Amino acid sequence: MITDDSLVALSSETERADFYKKTYLHVALSILAFIGVETILLKTVPAEIIGLMFGQKYTWLLIIGVFWLASILANKWSLSQSKSTQYMGLGFYILLEAVIFLPLIYIAVANAGGVVIYQAAMLTIAMFAGISVVAFTSKRDFSFLRNIIVIGGFIAIGLIVAGAIFGFDLGLWFSVGMVILASASILYETSKLKNTYTTNQYVGASLQLFASIMLLFWYILRILMSRRS
């Protein structure tokens, strides 16, 4: 008899379909919640405070460090057996993403009136949909991407920290590389849905997908903004 916490790969087709539906519904709701929280922050946080977030290099490094540590905690909560703890982790992570995106969105709105944000969002959705189709239709095992993503992530963090400390711009090609890394992360996380999670972990699965989507959106937005500068 299959229980509520059986592996998705071992569950029935109906249970798998239900897991996928709940996962992607939570991804969509997470994006809508992010938009809502970001809108509130843009309207309530003074411009001076937003300027301090990216105006001082060590302040930005501190924000990145806190975000990284808090992300680990949110991810742990989202995979808890307790549903309330899972949702607390997801909600906490959405709030973190809204805070970390605040300076970038503020600059984008100030420079392009939000048009560039819409363009980046449409490109992100299109890429996410295409990658998801590849992950679900391909019979290939994408688990090999994990090591690439981990190593690439550490290299990226090192470059970001070095750039902040020594004051050099990482440039367009770094953003392109991060788009590729984020795309690989989406492909890996989507393939994990079939083989790693239990049918009761759709909240945690949605957090991982949401995180990869937001990473992709961040660097697509940066690329589009660089073309306007």
Rank of each mutant, 00 (worst) to 15 (best):
G114D: 06
K22F: 03
L73W: 12
I157F: 13
L221V: 04
L145R: 00
R228H: 05
G89R: 08
L42N: 11
Y87M: 14
A108W: 06
F128P: 00
L32D: 03
S30P: 00
K43L: 14
V176N: 02
Q119V: 11
L221T: 01
S30L: 01
I31H: 05
S191L: 01
A108H: 03
T190G: 05
L7W: 12
L62M: 09
A17T: 12
L123H: 11
V8E: 04
F54R: 14
Q86P: 04
L224E: 07
F142D: 03
L215A: 08
S30Y: 01
G171N: 09
D141S: 03
L10S: 15
T190Q: 10
W218S: 00
R146E: 09
V109A: 11
A47T: 04
I2T: 11
I64D: 14
D5A: 14
K194M: 08
I63W: 10
R227A: 15
V8Y: 04
Y188L: 05
N195Q: 10
I107C: 06
E15K: 15
S132C: 02
K76R: 15
A182L: 08
D4I: 12
F101V: 03
S6N: 11
G158N: 10
F67I: 07
G152W: 05
I105E: 03
V116R: 06
L41W: 02
F136E: 11
I148S: 12
V115S: 14
I160A: 12
E48S: 06
A156C: 09
M53E: 04
Y93R: 06
Q86R: 15
V109C: 03
Y87Q: 08
S206L: 05
F19D: 01
L216Y: 04
K76S: 12
V176Q: 02
R228C: 01
M214P: 01
